[in-house]
C-alpha cells in the first residue's frame, strides 16, 4: 500500500442505501469531489469494508438495521476511524449515546439540503487533509530590526518633527483661541 498525499484525490464514500434514485441524485449532487461506492445493505457494507481499502466516509440509510450494522462495524478496531453519517427520519438523535457514540458524526434527513451537506462534506475533506498533514503548530515569528534601519527611522522622524514644530505650535494656539475650554461636555442622564 502506498502512502498517498495528493489532496486532489477524490473523497471516498461508501453509500449504504437500497433506493437507486437517491444514490443517483447523491452522486450527481457532489460529483467531482467524491467517489461513491454503493451497497444495498449493512452486510454488504461490512464485507466491502473487509475486502477493500478504507473509505473516508460512510453514509448509511437508517432503515437498514442500523444497530446491527453498528455492532458488526464496531467489532473490528481498524474500521472505527471511519466517520458515519446517518440518513434518517428521526427528529432528534443523541450522538453522545449508544450505539452512535464515537462513530456517527451527524444525521441528515432524507430530504436534506444539498447546500448544508456540501458544507459538511467540505469540512470532512479539509479534515482528512488536516489529519494527514499532521497537526501543524504555528510558531509566532520574531523579526529582528537591523540597527541601521532603526537609527534611520528615529533620526528622520526627529528632524521632521523639529522642522514642523512651529506649525504644530501655531495650530495648538489657534485651537486654544477658538475654544474657551480645551475639552468640556455636558451630559445629562
Amino acid at each position: 500500500m502506498k502512502a498517498v498525499s495528493d489532496s486532489n484525490e477524490p473523497f471516498r464514500i461508501l453509500y449504504v442505501d437500497n433506493d437507486e434514485r437517491r444514490i443517483k441524485s447523491f452522486q450527481r449532487a457532489f460529483q467531482p469531489q467524491i467517489a461513491v461506492t454503493d451497497v444495498p445493505d449493512g452486510w454488504s457494507a461490512i464485507s466491502y469494508l473487509d475486502d477493500n481499502e478504507p473509505v473516508d466516509l460512510i453514509v448509511y440509510n437508517d432503515t437498514l438495521n442500523t444497530r446491527g450494522f453498528m455492532n458488526a462495524f464496531k467489532a473490528k478496531q481498524s474500521r472505527t476511524k471511519i466517520p458515519i453519517i446517518l440518513l434518517t427520519d428521526q427528529e432528534t438523535i443523541d450522538l453522545t449515546a449508544d450505539p452512535y457514540h464515537g462513530y456517527v458524526i451527524d444525521a441528515f434527513p432524507y430530504n436534506f439540503s444539498e447546500a448544508a451537506f456540501q458544507i459538511r462534506l467540505n469540512y470532512l475533506i479539509q479534515k482528512r487533509d488536516y489529519q494527514r498533514s499532521g497537526r501543524v503548530v504555528y510558531k509566532p515569528i520574531s523579526v529582528r530590526m537591523p540597527i541601521g534601519k532603526r537609527a534611520f527611522d528615529i533620526g528622520l522622524s526627529f528632524f521632521i518633527l523639529l522642522a514642523i514644530s512651529p506649525l504644530l505650535l501655531v495650530v495648538a494656539l489657534l485651537v486654544k483661541l477658538d475654544s474657551r475650554d480645551l475639552f468640556s461636555t455636558d451630559q445629562n442622564g
Binding site: 438523535i93 459538511r120 469540512y123
Partner: peptide, 19 residues
C-alpha cells in the same frame, strides 16, 4: 484561528441537523 476559523465553525454547526 488557523485551520478552521470561528465563522466557518458557525457555518458548520448551523448546516448540521444534529448540531
Amino acid at each position: 484561528m488557523p485551520h478552521m476559523d470561528g465563522k466557518n465553525l458557525i457555518a458548520m454547526l448551523r448546516a448540521s441537523p444534529v448540531f
